[in-house]
Every structure is written in C-alpha cells, then in structure tokens.
C-alpha cells in the first residue's frame, strides 16, 4: 500500500494531479448544476411576476 502512495518517489506530483483534476471537474459540475437551478428559479419568478 505505501508503494501506491509513493509512486516511485513521484507521489506528490502524481496524486497532486489526480486530486486537482477531480476537484476542478467536480467544481465544474457543481457550478453548471447551480447555474441551471438558479436560471430555472429566475424563469419561474419571471413567469409569476408576469401573472401579477
């Protein structure tokens, strides 16, 4: 198991790349999802304002 983390002495660089990649991709999905949700809410409030 420690060999997996050590990656032949390049553990920091290899696992650093893995963690940064996962973090950026997850943040990307969260921001896209949040943008979609907030847009739908914006459209809903626009529709309800139009009805008043």
């Amino acid at each position: 198991m420690p060999e997996i983390f050590a990656m032949g002495g390049y553990g920091f660089y290899v696992w650093g790349s893995v963690l940064i990649s996962i973090a950026v991709l997850v943040i990307n999905w969260i921001t896209a999802h949040k943008k979609f949700k907030s847009t739908i809410n914006e459209v809903k409030s626009f529709i309800s304002k139009g009805k008043e």
């Binding site: 999905w29 896209a32 999802h33 943008k35 979609f36 847009t39 739908i40 459209v43």
Partner: peptide, 8 residues
C-alpha cells in the same frame, strides 16, 4: 447543462 441554462 450550461447550454440548457443559457437557453432558458
């Protein structure tokens, strides 16, 4: 996801 939001 983003295009759907932008289109909306």
């Amino acid at each position: 996801k983003r295009t759907a939001a932008e289109l909306a």
